[in-house]
Design a protein around this nucleic acid. Structure first.
Lengths: 79, 79
DNA sequence: CCACATTTGTCCGTATGTATC
DNA sequence: AGATACATACGGACAAATGTG
């Protein structure tokens, strides 16, 4: 295994983008299909990252609509 | 059509057990193989529940050792 | 040190369901 | 009706850490 797992890398990248302001509350993330292609991973790997990000309250997953960034105020405290 | 997803049910059950005191900080959860059998689900479904619980800081997953309950003080607030 | 079993970790491909547009 | 997008689940495969003999 590389430095860290791919699903963690995907999740960390999203968090980093939010912290950097590249993703703002309400923004929609690229589709899972696009993310899959960008990272060259399976659908399941992206979903694993999203399940984690949802638990961390960084995103909301809305079936049929997309995946959206939440308000960082609710989670942006420490590591 | 599932009342709710199996992986969420597994995760919620663990949280409920911790809240009820049936699982205490430092306790080791049943092995994934046992949990699989108990819920009659696949390995991946249990892992999904655990990835979520890890993000919620309810458990720590230690490769080769097991899955352990964390100190609820760090997460037991909110819904 | 070595071999082996156990246990968790990660990833893939596929199938099917459900919601939205 | 059809296309798009997310949701959930399964089975399989191999890697990595741990513990035991």
């Amino acid at each position: 295994m590389p430095e860290s797992a791919e699903y963690l890398r995907i999740a960390d990248d999203v968090i980093a983008d939010v912290r950097a302001g590249k993703l703002k509350p309400g923004d929609r993330l690229p589709s899972i299909a696009d993310t899959r292609a960008a990272y060259r991973v399976s659908y399941g790997t992206v979903q694993l990252a999203y399940v984690r990000l949802e638990a961390l309250r960084v995103i909301r997953r809305l079936q049929g609509k997309g995946v959206f960034v939440t308000d960082p105020k609710t989670w942006m405290r420490e590591p």
